[in-house]
Design a protein around this nucleic acid. Structure first.
Length: 803
DNA sequence: ATAGGGTTAG
């Protein structure tokens, strides 16, 4: 009597738990925490879940959050039934782990396997992009006599879609569908249509593409019962095979008000860059009374962003606020994410942040959108602190932050983050690699960059456009132009960024004429030059003293290519004209500018005046600079150097006094060199580096040899380093670039090229010194300064003393 | 327990 009551009680409890678990149907954190509570209650009341209740728990754990824990529960079952096994296979399918799914599949005795079990395994293979394996499982299934059903055929057709390449295969499957007696089942026919569609879009550009869409359409037209999916499959087929006209006709012939089909075409338009058409379709949808949902709105917002219709986007925002009084959580999340993107992309990052702050649910997309907003508006500090607050980071979060740091010159920090990301188990994508590679460019870390290049190849990212472009820049900025050229030549696809990068590489290394030739080549290949291209071209002309060419390209950039010159382009022109001593033309160019000259313009002018000793104009430029940015050290240095150039030492002293009074500190010069994968940094007069004493000793020895060849220290360059004024000549010998070069001579293999990097411009005395040194030590010395490269070889420099 | 379409972050 008593035992019967206990058994009954267990049964009632089981029923109650089973009912409760029914509520955890969606794959959401809410389901997961609910299930956890129910599970905890079971444990507390001594109820041991078995059978279908345990299977349900495993399913929820696996799909909502904790696959490992789900597997642990599964392993504790003495003899798992076919349902439990199927659950595990589909969990691994969703997690992308084909290997573990297969292990469970193989460990299941043949006698247990049923149709659903096979179906799950077939689906798992196609979810993991192995169409052939899926079809093999289907064959095994037929061989051992398990009857395929409509689900099986749908799954196999999906697998076929991955590998299909001609119409014959589609027709064969069509026959198989009829043979299995499934020729009237809507879901199976939908999958069949989808195979034709995939085949059509993979043969894009071939004549067969149109006829395949025709066959797809024929199956569709003959279907007795069509559902939402049937319509959507056809319309996305037309969109993917670039036939937007057919898509529209198809849409017009549709009497049902199926929002999802309209959504498909709107997003299709956006992906094809037809934003205007997307907007029109949205309006048509509205006027026909087709219900709109979050997918409609997000695609529409995306059209506004890509088409630059920001006002329209804001109107939609108001419309949504008015009409959606009680939005579902899913609706709010995705629409707000899209709105955040809209606002930051039209420069209203603070509005975007307000929306973000008000959101009741946020996901990683929301966080990443704001992060990108800070990155794009160059608010690096905000980006950094926001990044540290992000609760759940994904691959993209890391990638955005890494490339932000890399683009803003924080190479070391970016590389640190790159490593941290890997240690947290993320495998970097090509964009993340691009960020890390650019960091190496910033740091001049050639060996590290080469290692990343090797890893890139190993991970199969070597065909990536962004990584390839980063490699061009990295090799160029590390001083190996040939490697940059090779990277450019071996890229399977290139874009204007690739061209710009290589043109810039040649320009920085003083190969101005070659840079211009490459530009001509780019035009021949019908690549549209952009503002960066012209920036690079003007630098190339400036560095190489090609004034006539520079003037020509500047004049034609707008008239021939529609790129209007910005302040940065004018700055390059002023720089070029002043270096060449053409001050009157520089002056009139400034007067003709359509905007007020800013600090960069005056700075270029001042630098030119310093080189040529043009006192009047130089003083005027300096005065403007003092007004525009009184705290900037560069102006004081240039001005004082200008006075020194003509021997006005009292004025030099005045400028220095002014600096002291205003509390302005010169950015200390520092140079670095990579030896055996370590970066060694030297400051002026360095005493901190552990091996610097040997450097001083060798430097002295070399100095004697060089003096015999005619080297004479030029003391006026001491003024680059105000802090060492007392020991002029001694100070010269301890400029950071000299220390770094000599360190390289002592520590790099015989004959290896010395590559040194400096944060500021190279000093004139050092420049002369390295020319002699390249003769004495008989090897090539490459110095990258703040602006460009100098290759010292056989007593000459590639810049032709023109920098 | 298993299939199939439309969205937002570089």
């Amino acid at each position: 009597m008593k035992t019967r009551t206990a058994a009954m009680e267990v049964r009632t409890m089981a029923n109650r738990y089973a009912t409760q678990l029914q509520f955890c149907r969606t794959r959401s954190p809410i389901s997961h925490s609910l299930a956890q509570n129910i599970h905890a209650h079971m444990t507390a009341s001594g109820f041991r879940p078995r059978g279908h209740i345990l299977n349900r728990l495993i399913d929820i754990y696996c799909k909502c959050s904790n696959l490992t824990y789900g597997r642990k529960l599964f392993d504790e079952i003495p003899e798992p039934d076919i349902v439990a096994r199927t659950t595990m296979i589909s969990a691994y399918s969703a997690a992308g782990n084909l290997k573990l799914a297969r292990a469970i599949f193989s460990a299941t005795p043949l006698s247990m396997r049923d149709t659903v079990f096979y179906n799950a395994m077939i689906t798992c293979c196609s979810h993991n992009n192995d169409g052939f394996a899926a079809i093999q499982i289907f064959r095994d299934m037929k061989r051992v006599g398990v009857r395929p059903d409509d689900f099986t055929l749908s799954s196999v057709l999906c697998a076929l879609g991955l590998i299909v390449d001609d119409e014959k295969q589609c027709q064969q499957m069509h026959c198989a569908v009829v043979k299995f007696g499934l020729g009237l089942i809507t879901s199976v026919l939908n999958s069949l249509v989808s195979v034709y569609v995939k085949c059509a879009s993979s043969s894009l550009g071939l004549s067969s593409s149109g006829s395949l869409m025709g066959s797809a359409r024929k199956v569709f037209d003959e279907m007795v019962e069509k559902d939402e999916l049937s319509w959507t499959t056809i319309i996305t087929g037309y969109v993917k095979s670039n036939d937007l006209v057919a898509a529209n006709e198809f849409l017009d012939g549709m009497t049902e008000k199926l929002g999802i089909v309209w959504n498909a075409i709107i997003s299709g338009y956006v992906h094809h860059g037809c934003c205007q058409e997307a907007v029109q379709t949205f309006r048509k949808m509205l006027s026909k009374g087709v219900p709109q949902d979050e997918f409609t709105y997000t695609s529409f917002i995306s059209a506004c962003i890509n088409g630059g219709f920001f006002q329209l986007g804001r109107q939609l925002h108001c419309y949504i606020l008015r009409t959606e009084v009680q939005p579902t959580p899913d609706f709010s999340l995705s629409v707000n994410n899209a709105l955040v993107t809209l606002y930051y992309k039209c420069g209203k990052i603070d509005t975007a942040r307000e929306i973000f702050n008000k959101m009741s649910i946020r996901d990683v997309v929301s966080w990443n959108a704001i992060l990108s907003g800070y990155v794009e508006t160059k608010r690096t500090e905000d980006a950094k602190s926001f990044f540290s607050e992000i609760p759940e980071r994904n691959l993209l979060t890391w990638t955005i932050m890494i490339s932000c740091l890399a683009q803003n010159g924080c190479g070391e920090e970016a590389l640190k983050l790159f490593n941290q990301m890997r240690s947290e188990g993320f495998e970097p994508c090509d964009y993340a690699f691009a960020g890390a590679i650019i960091s190496c460019a910033v740091l001049g870390a050639l060996m590290h960059g080469r290692q990343l290049h090797a890893q890139l190849i190993r991970l199969g990212h070597d065909t990536s456009l962004s990584a390839g472009n980063a490699l061009i820049t990295m090799y160029a900025r590390c001083g190996v132009v040939e490697a940059a050229e090779l990277a450019f030549l071996t890229m399977p696809y290139i874009d204007s960024v690739s061209w710009n990068a290589l043109i810039a590489a040649l320009a920085q290394h003083g190969r101005g004429l070659e840079a211009l030739e490459l530009f001509e080549q780019m035009l021949k290949e019908d690549i549209q030059p952009d503002r960066i291209t012209f920036l690079t071209i003007l630098s190339a002309c400036s560095h190489a003293g090609l004034v006539r060419e520079g003037r020509h390209h500047f004049d034609s950039m707008f008239s021939s290519y529609g790129v209007s010159p910005g302040e940065d382009h004018y700055t390059r022109m002023i720089d070029m004209l002043c270096r060449a001593g053409n001050f009157s033309e520089a002056r009139s160019l400034i007067d003709s500018m359509p905007f007020e000259p800013g600090a960069p313009i005056w700075e270029a002018l001042l630098a030119g005046c310093r080189t040529h000793g043009n006192m009047d104009l130089g003083i005027e430029a300096a005065e403007r600079l003092f007004e525009l940015r009184p705290q900037h050290d560069g102006t004081y240095i240039l001005l004082s150097n200008m006075y020194a150039h003509v021997g006005q030492w009292d004025n030099v002293a005045k400028v220095r006094k002014l600096m002291r009074e205003r509390g302005i500190k010169k950015e200390p010069g520092c140079s670095w060199i990579e030896v055996e994968n370590n970066v060694h940094v030297f400051l002026v007069d360095d005493t901190k580096h552990p091996r610097v004493q040997a450097v001083y000793k060798y430097l002295e020895k070399l100095g004697l040899k060089m003096r015999k060849l005619g080297y004479v220290p030029d003391t006026k360059f001491v003024l680059h380093d105000m802090e060492s004024e007392e020991h002029k000549e001694y100070a010269l010998s301890t400029h950071s670039e000299k220390l770094a070069v000599v360190f390289g001579l002592l520590n790099l293999p015989q004959g290896a090229t010395i590559r040194v990097f400096k944060n500021l411009r190279i000093c004139g005395d050092c420049h002369n010194f390295f020319k002699f040194m390249s003769r004495v030590v008989k090897r090539e010395i490459v110095v990258r300064d703040g602006k460009r490269f100098h290759h010292f070889r056989h007593g000459e420099c590639s810049c032709g003393n023109y920098w």
